[in-house]
Amino acid sequence: MTLFPLARGGGLAALLALAASLGAPNAGAQPAYPDKPLRIMVGASPGGGTDILARVLADKFSPELKQPVTVENRPGASNTIAGELTARAPADGATLLLATNTAQAVAPHILKLKYDPLKDLQPIGLVAVMPNVLVVSVNSPYKSVKDLVAAMAAKPGGFKYASSGIGSTQHVGGEAFNLATGMKSIHVPYKGSSQAHIDIISGEVEMMFDSTSSAMGQIRAGKFRALAVSAPQRSPELPDVPTLAEQGIKGADVSTWYGLYVTAGTPRPAVERLSAELTRTLNLTDVQSRIKALGGEPGTLTGEPFAAMNKQEFDHYGQLVRDARIKAE
Rank of each mutant, 00 (worst) to 15 (best):
V133T: 04
M1R: 12
I291V: 14
G23W: 13
F177I: 11
P68C: 08
A154P: 09
T302P: 03
P269R: 00
S275N: 04
V262M: 01
D92I: 03
A19M: 14
R322A: 15
Q122M: 02
P131S: 11
I198G: 04
N132E: 08
E204N: 13
P141I: 13
H171W: 07
S214N: 11
F209Q: 13
A99K: 01
M208A: 13
G173E: 02
N178M: 14
K146L: 09
L85M: 15
S255D: 11
V133M: 01
A89K: 09
F209D: 07
A7C: 08
G167C: 11
G28V: 06
S137E: 01
T169D: 08
D315W: 03
S213M: 13
A82D: 08
P25F: 10
Y115V: 06
Q247A: 11
N26D: 11
S289F: 10
L238R: 02
M216E: 11
V136C: 03
P75G: 10
L118H: 04
V205S: 04
G259N: 09
Q312W: 06
Q218Y: 15
N178Q: 13
A29Q: 12
M309L: 15
L244C: 02
A215I: 13
V106F: 07
G167K: 05
A228Y: 07
K146H: 15
L148Q: 05
Q319W: 05
P239H: 06
M207H: 09
G43Q: 01
F314T: 03
K66T: 08
S211W: 04
P46M: 06
P131G: 08
A221M: 12
G295M: 09
P68A: 10
P232N: 12
K60G: 03
S185F: 02
L284I: 09
I186T: 10
D120Y: 00
G295C: 11
G248L: 12
A24S: 12
E64Y: 06
L96M: 09
L278C: 01
L320T: 04
E313T: 10
A107G: 07
D210G: 12
N132L: 06
T285W: 08
Q288L: 08
I219R: 03
S163I: 04
L118C: 03
Y190G: 00
R88S: 13
L121G: 01
L294G: 13
F61D: 02
